[in-house]
């Protein structure tokens, strides 16, 4: 028991970050599962975090109310952003959401209510490891169930071939908006949890590099099954600590090994880490394997 307490004292914060990042990765997975590349999920997490944080500090709202409000606010923002931008495809959608993310970050940096560059300070620490993993488990269950639902199949069909999906009677706009809104809401929940973890949040914590990290978790873990992003987030968040445990402490070397591992996974595990657990044919991924390479 002593050992566990000791390990938790040392690695508890890594464990917390793994959980939060996994939840964020899952939020992007929902969006990606319909083939939409969003770089806005970090900003949605920021919206959730700031809304929850402001409610807690300025209005004295209870923790759970703040979490709920953060989730809803981010979901609403996702829906409102989704309406105009979801007609964009591929890289254009990525750019629009990236610009949105920067606008949100700059707003947080300049508004009074968000505390500007110093960030929102004096947040009560309410989030703990149990709550994070409870939220993660609930979200993962929801997403896993969704994959087998009508909505899940509609999303997959859009990802694989939008025109065919439309021809089969899938309502493209509605389905995409639902995916985008759900993803934004999950990101908002992760942000609200994060806001109550470390006394403060700052605009920089929800910037472009975080948005790219989320994409990295999904690609490294594999974005065709729900546990892929969880694996990716867990591995990449823990990697610096793992390397430290292996004695790799020097800054540049650790950074280099980080990059090298990322490169090797991309080159040699095309479907991500999830593929290692997942060799037998799964109906959810079968169409993907049969998809021809686009010239």
């Amino acid at each position: 028991m002593d050992l566990i307490t000791h390990l938790y004292a040392v690695y508890g914060s890594v464990l917390n970050f793994m959980g939060i990042n996994a939840l964020l990765a899952l939020s992007l997975y929902v969006t990606l599962s319909s083939g939409l590349l969003s770089l806005g999920n970090a900003a949605f997490a920021g919206i959730g975090g700031y809304v929850a944080g402001i409610l807690t500090t300025k209005l004295g709202a209870p923790y759970l109310v703040s979490l709920g409000a953060g989730t809803l606010a981010a979901g609403l923002a996702g829906m409102l952003l989704g309406l105009p931008v979801l007609r964009l495809r591929g890289v254009f959608l990525a750019m629009a959401t990236l610009a949105f993310g920067e606008v949100v970050r700059i707003a947080a940096l300049n508004l009074e209510i968000t505390g500007g560059a110093m960030g929102l300070i004096g947040l009560p620490v309410k989030t703990n490891t149990w709550i994070i993993y409870l939220a993660l488990a609930a979200a993962a269950y929801l997403v896993a169930r969704m994959a087998r639902s009508r909505l899940g199949w509609a999303l997959t069909s859009i990802r694989e071939d939008e025109t065919a999906a439309a021809a089969m009677g899938v309502n493209l706009t509605l389905t995409k908006t639902i995916a985008f809104t759900l993803g934004a809401g999950l990101a908002g929940l992760a942000g609200a949890l994060y806001a109550h973890l470390n006394f403060l949040i700052t605009p920089g914590e929800f910037g472009f590099s975080v948005a790219v990290n989320l994409l990295m978790y999904n690609i490294v873990g594999g974005y065709r099954v729900w546990y892929g992003p969880l694996l990716g987030a867990a591995l990449l968040t823990a990697l610096p600590e793992l390397l430290r445990a292996l004695g790799v402490t020097a800054g540049p070397l650790r950074l280099g090994i980080n990059g090298l591992i990322l490169l090797l996974v991309i080159l040699f595990l095309p479907k991500g880490l999830a593929d290692l657990f997942h060799r037998r044919g799964d109906p959810a991924t079968a169409p993907a394997q049969a998809a021809p390479a686009k010239g």
């Binding site: 950074l255 280099g256 980080n258 990059g259």
Partner: peptide, 14 residues
């Protein structure tokens, strides 16, 4: 996107 980020990280480490 990701493999080029990986290259960027390796360059930065170098």
């Amino acid at each position: 996107l990701i493999s080029s980020i990986a290259m960027a990280i390796i360059f930065e480490a170098l």
